[in-house]
């Protein structure tokens, strides 16, 4: 099945697909996920601390973002906003959408993790003279993030793959690069499998990093008995 021509196309295209992976897919993921984590921690803390008004806004944000497709969100920002005179480049548009989208999911993961830390430790912090913020920062949040780590790793892996949707708003990432080569060579099966394999490589590295991270993270004596 694999003749010389196809072999040539595949080896030729490998770098042409991998390169936008390194210049678009990975930066898009890293920047978006970092911003998303900031949003997620903030939204989770607002809900956990029961801050009036802000809590309602956080719930509203999470409700809207989780209730609408990522693809629709991309279209609204990139194709929709220009009608209001707001014209954004493809890459920043994608960063905005992926950050906001992942922020909503991450907020729920972190909120659940915060709630899994026994509330008594907060009271113990108060009784030791520590303030709410001091206790959250030094006692509750580290434990919650430890609990949330596997779920957040999961989200990160999902995001790497979801960035392929950015092709729809003309971000030249791996999937778009592949589409272009397919249009030229008419080898959809081989090339789409090839890009799939490259995504799998990325995910594999992240899965491995997750395992290392979980081992490295302080287990507070849980695995050292």
């Amino acid at each position: 099945m694999i003749n010389e021509r196809l072999y040539g196309i595949l080896t030729d295209s490998f770098m042409k697909i991998l390169l936008p992976g390194l210049t678009a897919t990975i930066p898009l993921t890293i920047i978006s996920f970092s911003v998303a984590m900031v949003i997620a921690v903030a939204m989770a803390l607002i809900q956990f601390a029961n801050v009036k008004v802000l809590k309602e806004l956080a719930r509203f944000y999470i409700w809207v973002i989780r209730g609408t497709p990522l693809l629709v969100q991309l279209y609204v920002i990139f194709f929709g906003l220009p009608s209001l005179g707001i014209v954004l480049d493809p890459f920043p548009s994608a960063v905005i959408v992926f950050s906001i989208n992942e922020g909503a999911y991450g907020a729920e993961i972190i909120r659940a993790a915060l709630e899994s830390v026994p509330k008594g430790q907060l009271e113990a912090g108060y009784c030791a003279g520590m303030s709410y913020l001091q206790t959250m920062r030094r006692i509750i949040l580290p434990q919650a993030l430890r609990t949330a780590f596997p779920s957040l790793s999961n989200s990160l892996i999902a995001m790497v793959k979801d960035t392929s949707l950015a092709a729809n708003i003309t971000v030249t990432e791996m999937f778009m690069a592949t589409q272009r080569i397919v249009a030229r060579t008419y080898e959809p099966l081989a090339l789409y499998i090839e890009v799939g394999v490259i995504y799998l490589m990325f995910s594999t590295v992240l899965t491995w990093l997750q395992r290392v991270g979980e081992k490295k993270l302080d287990f507070y004596g849980y695995n050292r008995r």
Partner: peptide, 27 residues
């Protein structure tokens, strides 16, 4: 004042010594 709880409520992410020193250092 100090408070000792029924369920101990030690800081799970701190060692025994850190549990004792945490309030002194932070508060």
């Amino acid at each position: 004042t100090a408070f000792v709880f029924q369920n101990f409520n030690l800081f799970a992410n701190k060692t025994a010594l850190q549990n004792v020193t945490e309030g002194l250092i932070v508060a």
